[in-house]
Simulated assay, not measured.
Amino acid sequence: MAACDTDEYQDYQFEQDRSIEVSSADQLSAPDAQPTIVLGSSGGELLAKSGPLLASDDFAPPAQNFGPGTHSISIPALSCVAQGGAISGDLNGCEGGTTTRANGDSEFPCAITAEAPDVRTTFICPLELPSGAKINSVTAHGYDDSSDAYMEAAIWRTSNAHFAPDYFSPSFEGQWQSSGLASTPGAFSFPVYLNTDPAHTVSAGYRYTLGFGLEYSTMTVLAFGFEVTYTVS
């Protein structure tokens, strides 16, 4: 296991827990004591303010990949939410590699599969990009070890005041793309938004979503996740 950088870990704790720090016992007992609220970190330095947290305060740390340029983000299938009563989280445990758990086994969460044979299981994943960003491409990744299993996926947006999907892919529209039923293809990938299509500009007032479905009959199919490339001007 790689050595842990204490400073990095502390920054991560602060970003996740929004910790409240008081520098001394005297400060606690002072009549006008104002705790220091840590809002996040940037470049290894903590962002903090004294006094109560206001609605106008920027509570989130600066996003590292929202600066100008073209970026890529990966969305693990394990982070997506199951629909229709299926179980979210790992539905296919793996083991081996260098994993050693506290009780001595080597199991680790690795990928998502369908809930049961001949039952399509659907998952959704939020896609969080700033308004004005341009989506260049979306690619789905997975693994299939049979000729009767597939993964399908699509991208859409939904108005904040509505529930109907707006499929904005010029080439695919509302047609969910699929890995197909090829004979034991092994690791696969397929496009969900083509990089040859005009880039889609993310608009305020919409929720952006990636969805995927899995189905198999005999052997399993695994969803690994998505890769999204986007540009910020």
Rank of each mutant, 00 (worst) to 15 (best):
Leu53Ala: 13
Glu227Phe: 01
Ala164Trp: 12
Leu78Lys: 04
Leu222His: 01
Val202Ile: 14
Ser24Gly: 09
Asp144Thr: 02
Ala3Ile: 12
Arg207Glu: 06
Tyr208Thr: 01
Gln175Asp: 12
Leu127Trp: 04
Glu173Asp: 11
Ala111Ile: 02
Ser24Met: 04
Asp11Met: 10
Pro52Ile: 12
Glu173Ala: 13
Leu53Cys: 12
Gln34Tyr: 00
Thr100Tyr: 11
Thr209Glu: 09
Glu45Lys: 14
Asp105Ala: 04
Ser178Leu: 00
Gly174Pro: 03
Pro35Asp: 07
Ser189Trp: 02
Phe212Pro: 00
Asp26Ile: 04
Ala77Val: 02
Pro35Phe: 03
Phe59Thr: 14
Ala140His: 05
Val228Asn: 04
Ala204Phe: 06
Phe226Leu: 02
Pro165Ser: 09
Pro126Thr: 03
Pro68Leu: 08
Ala48Leu: 12
Thr121Met: 10
Ser147Cys: 05
His162Ile: 06
Val192Pro: 03
Cys110His: 02
Ser203Gly: 04
Thr6Pro: 08
Gln34Glu: 14
Thr229Tyr: 05
Pro68Ser: 14
Asn103Ser: 12
His162Arg: 10
Gly93Leu: 06
Glu173Cys: 04
Cys125His: 06
Thr36Lys: 15
Phe14Pro: 00
Pro198Ser: 11
Ser217Gln: 12
Ala149Pro: 00
Met1Lys: 11
Leu78Cys: 05
Leu54Asp: 11
Thr6Ser: 10
Ala153Phe: 00
Glu21Lys: 11
Glu21Arg: 11
Lys134His: 12
Ala164Glu: 14
Leu39Gly: 06
